[in-house]
Amino acid sequence: MALAHAHSPTQRRLNRQAAKPGRTIRIRIKRCDGPGKPSRWEHFDVKVERGANVISCLQQIAAHPVTADGKATTPVVWDAICLEEICGACTMLINGRVRQSCSCLIDEYAPNHGDSITLEPMSKFPVVRDLWVDRSRAFEALKRIKAWIPIDGTYHLGPGPREPARPQLTRYTLSTCMTCACCLEACPQYTIEHDESKWDASFIGAHAISQVRLFNSHQTGKQLAPDRLDILTGLGGIASCGNAQNCVKVCPKDIPLTESIGAIGRAATLHALAKWFSGPS
């Protein structure tokens, strides 16, 4: 997968300033009718509205599903919810690079008349239809690592642990992970797996490792740290990370994923050593 950013931030700003109003651009979309069906490309010409993003172009196509060569087709299916890059749903490959489509501004990607933008579904997850993929494996990983604080229940028991501002800020940053799976798409070690029974033994992914760091750094949450590290020292755990560092480059929330992998890698080593010395429990 091409990781090189098709457009640098500077280039995107220049593009935005140079964008021609009233232009028409071409959207090339890789489509697929359902699991096991062949993929095909369809091209659409879209008149760019002010402030247009990939979502508004897809909305235009839905309202008028006719390809560039005049053939009637069906509206493109895609996953989208908040359109503010906070829910993580509308993730896809845009010009070969994974990102959310809502925050992808047409002015930045296709400033000139006739420019084109390519949309493809993420490649590491099974396609449901068109640009919509099934990311349940990413959520299953959160269950495996017990991504929660084991509270005593919802009755009133007073406040949580007091926490200085700095660790709070670290936890906040880690806690902004939307499970959008950009990091998984970009990871060479994370490969598509249709067979659910093989998920547990396949690489769990940077998002889950970073969530382990989040929960292990909370006073109550760390009670489950051994269970979490057991998972990460097992098959498909942290040892499967190939240190390509792609994850951190594509994270839309700038979560320090490689830092998390480093920190949890050290914790996992200590955990494994401790277990080794104490013998099998």
Binding site: I149, I151, G158, G160, P164, A165, Q168, Y172, F215
Partner: peptide, 22 residues
Amino acid sequence: PRIIDLLDRMGVPFNRTAEGFR
């Protein structure tokens, strides 16, 4: 106030003051 306390126990990273209060 009880709801805030509960969310706090659930690990919500509420912004903190210099002294570590919410």
